[in-house]
């Protein structure tokens, strides 16, 4: 309890100013609430995604970290996000291609084909890395490559056509070292041959591990695989 001294009165007066000031600040915050119309479309999109509760950004993800990183763009994402679709300029494409070439890591023992039967299932499976209302539990199942979503492979199952048909892949191309390297590169980081392609960077992103890539490649190249029937 403060005695009514001149000093106390002064403190009280100061407190009143602080409280009033606090209100003024709060009001200013409200009236200065982010003005969407003052932002560029790009700035507003970033704001809506990261600052305005647009997405659940704090969920843990399978690769470690949180869902926030699934919305943060890396250099390739930025370079290849073109309003209206289509490709960026040639210089940008060359930079994307060069970065992709740098990114590719080869297996220690060289590129080898794995188990085509496992590869067949991985090429079909769409399981893996999904988050949100249903989250894929990677301890329960292997992560698939979901190749059939976009590619036709063996014709016993129906594939999509967002990417080219890969039916008879090994049969028509052979299994030379150069051919295996090309296919490995395409799975690991396809931007090295097709900068700003729609295809995911399955190796670079860690989506598929070395064994999964070897098994899927066996499904593409093995003479026994139904892809090459």
């Amino acid at each position: 309890m403060l005695k009514k001294t001149p000093i106390a009165a002064g403190i009280a007066a100061l407190a009143t100013i602080f409280i009033a000031g606090g209100c003024a600040v709060a009001d200013a915050d409200k009236s200065n609430a982010v003005d969407y119309t003052a932002m560029t479309p790009e700035e507003l999109a970033e704001h809506l995604i990261f600052e305005a509760n647009g997405f659940v950004l704090d969920q843990e993800v399978q690769e470690g970290g949180t869902t926030r990183q699934r919305m943060v763009q890396d250099d390739l994402h930025k370079a290849c996000s073109v309003i209206g679709g289509g490709d960026p300029d040639q210089e940008t494409l060359e930079a994307v291609r060069a970065a992709a070439a740098e990114s590719i890591v080869y297996p220690e023992g060289g590129i080898e084909l794995g188990d085509w039967e496992r590869g067949r299932e991985l090429a079909w499976s769409g399981f893996g890395y999904r988050v949100g209302h249903k989250t894929d539990d990677h301890s329960a199942r292997d992560v698939g490559g979901n190749c059939y979503n976009c590619h036709q492979l063996a014709t016993d199952r129906t594939g999509g056509n967002l990417g080219p048909s890969l039916t008879g892949y090994g049969k028509t191309r052979g299994t030379s070292e150069a051919m295996l390297k090309y296919a490995y590169d395409m799975i690991y980081n396809p931007h090295v041959y097709f900068p700003c392609t729609n295809m995911p960077r399955f190796g670079h992103s860690g989506f598929l591990d070395e064994q999964a890539i070897a098994d899927i490649m066996a499904y593409m190249f093995d003479p026994e695989s139904p892809v090459n029937e």
């Binding site: 790009e42 209206g84 056509n161 960077r201």
Partner: peptide
């Protein structure tokens, strides 16, 4: 801003909305 979002690639699979909806006659499976 919605247009930017439609073409905005990100994430572990590098997709955007345009990956699937930018061309006519394309199929997923």
């Amino acid at each position: 801003a919605g247009e930017v979002m439609f073409y905005r690639r990100s994430g572990i699979a590098d997709f955007n909305c345009n990956t699937c909806h930018g061309e006519s006659g394309k199929r997923i499976r």
